[in-house]
Computed example of a mutant assay.
Amino acid sequence: MLILLPPSEGKTPASAGPAVDLASLSFPALEAARREVVAALAEVSAREDALEALGVGASLAHDVERNRRLDEEPAAPAHSVYSGVLYEALGYRTLTPAQRRRAEECVVVVSALWGAVGFADQVPAYRLSMSTALPGLGRLASFWKPRLAEALAERTAVGLVVDCRSSTYAAAYAPPAATTVAVDVFRERDGRRSVVSHFAKHHRGELVRHLLTRRGKAPSTPEALLAVARERWEAELVAGTARRAHSLALILRD
Rank of each mutant, 00 (worst) to 15 (best):
G10T: 15
G10V: 15
G10P: 14
T12W: 12
T12F: 14
P13G: 06
P13H: 01
P13N: 09
P13L: 11
S15Q: 04
S15W: 00
A16R: 10
G17C: 08
G17N: 06
G17H: 00
G17F: 01
P18Q: 10
P18H: 10
A19Y: 03
A19E: 05
V20R: 10
V20H: 09
V20A: 12
V20L: 14
V20G: 02
D21T: 12
D21N: 12
D21A: 12
A23E: 11
A23V: 00
S24V: 03
S24D: 11
S24F: 00
S24N: 05
S24T: 08
L25R: 08
S26P: 10
F27L: 15
F27R: 13
F27Y: 15
F27V: 11
A29G: 10
L30F: 03
E31A: 15
E31W: 03
A32I: 08
A32L: 09
A32R: 15
A33I: 04
A33T: 00
R35D: 11
R35Y: 07
E36M: 07
E36A: 09
E36S: 12
E36H: 10
V37A: 07
V37W: 00
V38I: 15
V38T: 12
A39W: 00
A39Q: 11
A39T: 11
A40P: 07
E43C: 06
V44Y: 01
V44R: 02
S45K: 09
A46R: 14
A46V: 04
E48M: 02
E48N: 09
E48A: 14
D49H: 01
D49N: 13
L51N: 11
A53V: 01
A53M: 06
A53K: 05
A53D: 00
A53S: 10
L54R: 07
L54K: 08
V56L: 13
G57H: 02
A58P: 11
S59T: 15
S59N: 13
L60T: 13
L60C: 14
A61H: 05
H62K: 14
V64Q: 06
V64M: 04
E65V: 08
E65F: 01
E65W: 01
E65H: 08
E65M: 04
R66L: 10
R66H: 06
N67A: 08
R68F: 02
L70Q: 13
E72F: 05
E73D: 08
E73Q: 10
P74V: 09
